[in-house]
Amino acid sequence: MALINYIGVYNFDNIFELTKDEMLELKDYMRMNSDSEYITRLLGVYIPNECKDQVIKELEPKLYGIRLDKIKECKNFILICPEIIQEFCIENYREFEKCGIEDIFELYTIIFDNVLAHEIGHGVFAYINDADNESKANYFASLTFDGTFDRIIKIMTDIQKGSYKNPKLIDDCIEDIVEKVYKIK
């Protein structure tokens, strides 16, 4: 039963919505931790405890008061940016039309849920330290939606490039998933 050699454990304390301005404060953090264009990663981000202080420091010029206090009390948390997701949907709508998406609002709802599930996926598998984090997060999103949004995830990751490319999805070859997602060879 290789598939449950690692069990997902929901490890995040809270989820916060940021504005585009606030999220863009994280571009240096994202550049350091990413091999792809930072803007395509800023739709959402999972912040593990070890990066918390750096992220809070970068957010401090734009974020203050009760919102910042709430972030500070978390160990691991998720940041999501509806504004950037909306821009992403408007810019790339044509790419998703072939999936039968009828309008930008529908696309926005699906992408938002996907980004959220993807970031939760980072939180679920965060305790497994390796380089295939994006594979795990995308697999989690695919699993969560029973493969319904797999075509959307594929298009999305093609746009995002870098380590997002070739996501592992629920209907992919099982050996591939076992190796990339669950690290069992």
């Binding site: 449950i4 997902g8 929901y10 304390d13 939760i120 029973d146």
Partner: peptide, 28 residues
């Protein structure tokens, strides 16, 4: 539990968590 999840995400998180655990249960 000390931190209360942002209310806006309560239902979504519950839904995602239930779906994931249903998948695990199927595997078991």
């Amino acid at each position: 539990k000390k931190i209360k999840l942002n209310e806006k995400f309560n239902n979504r998180i519950e839904l995602i968590r239930n779906k994931y655990y249903r998948q695990l249960l199927n595997l078991i």
